[in-house]
Each structure stands twice: as C-alpha cells, then as structure tokens.
Amino acid sequence: MTPEDIEVLRRTLVRQPEIVSFKDELKLASLVASLGIQREAGTLNDEMARFVFDAETGEIIPYHHIRSELVQYNGAVGVRIWAEGHERIDLRFRGIQPLLHPRFSYREDGSIYQCVFFPESIAKILALQGAELVLVREWGMNTIFGGFDPEKHYYQTNFWELENNDTLRFAKLVESRKIPFLEPTTLSLISPE
C-alpha cells in the first residue's frame, strides 16, 4: 500500500463508529486488521513471534527473521507471515492453527511453512461460536495510523491504554462476545475448538 492508500484508509476509518464490526464493514475491517498485523510482524511488538519455533531445530525463531506482506485472494485481503531461513515452523500456541488458511499455510506433509490469515474468514469462524469480530476505531487510529514505529516497544502504548481506561472497554467487549481483532493471539479468547 502506498502512503496515499494508507491515508485514504485512515480517513475512512475515522468516519466509522467507535466499534467497527466485521459483520458491517467486512472489507474495511479486514484491510485495517491485516495492515496492523503486517506492520507488527517481525518487530519488537510482534507478540506472535514468541510462539514461532523452527520445527526442525526446536529453537525459537528470532523475531527479526520474521517477514510479512499483505496478500489478496479472490477479493479477500489477508496477511502472509513467514520466517526467512526456516523451512518448517512450529506454532506453539493452541488454537491458532484452525485460523490459518490451509492451502497457503501447510505443505502436503502437514508441516507449516508460512501463516496466511484472512480476517474475513476468521470473523466467520468466530461467528460459529456466537462471537463477533470487531475493531476498536481508536485503537486502530492510535496504533496503525498513529505514527507506528517498529523500533519502539509497546510499553509506550500501554500508558495510552491506561489513560483511556481500555481495560474496561476490552472487558465490556469480551463480556458481550465481541472480540477486538488486534493480532492472532487475541483470538485465544475464543478458539474455534
């Protein structure tokens, strides 16, 4: 995406309600979520990285080996995450495998060579459990469109969360079975199993 594309996306998001449901704004929400994940992957803020191991050596893969890009498939926007120099990856995080698109993530022998997520599919998977995938507009504005710096640790944003009483907002959303899509590990709250 070009800086102009991102600015258009930002202006579109800012006009949305406080809580943006994937049900109502599937394409917009999918693009924003994919962009957020793509930008965090392989940085200090990549919270999925600590679950990503090399399946052959059993060692954790250094986060700076992790790469990502936006992908599009039959109109669906998603994100592809892979680890440079690692042929097979072992995701040591229960509940995440069902969220991967099987065709693009697994080899025929069942090993995982990359992670391809399509947020719109994840929204449908969560709907099976009676949960609704949402974006919190302000979180998107603060992180994705708020001058995201991959060199800075998320502690900076944690203060922002405290000031905005986001714990309460998060709790209220989860109480009403709305899952804010921040990253794949967020979905551990409701796994499709």
Partner: peptide, 29 residues
Amino acid sequence: DPVPVGREEVPSQVVAIHLALDSAQGAVA
C-alpha cells in the same frame, strides 16, 4: 507460555469457511 501442540484438529465447518474463499467471486489471486 509457548507449548508444543502438534497438529491441531480443524473442525469441518472451519475448513469449509477457508475453502469458500477458493470459489469466491472477485479479484485476482
């Protein structure tokens, strides 16, 4: 904490959702 989980079973309804993208109308792969 990271825990080895092996190959997780994926419910058929979930597989169907993923595979529905294959036949979705729309843009270029």
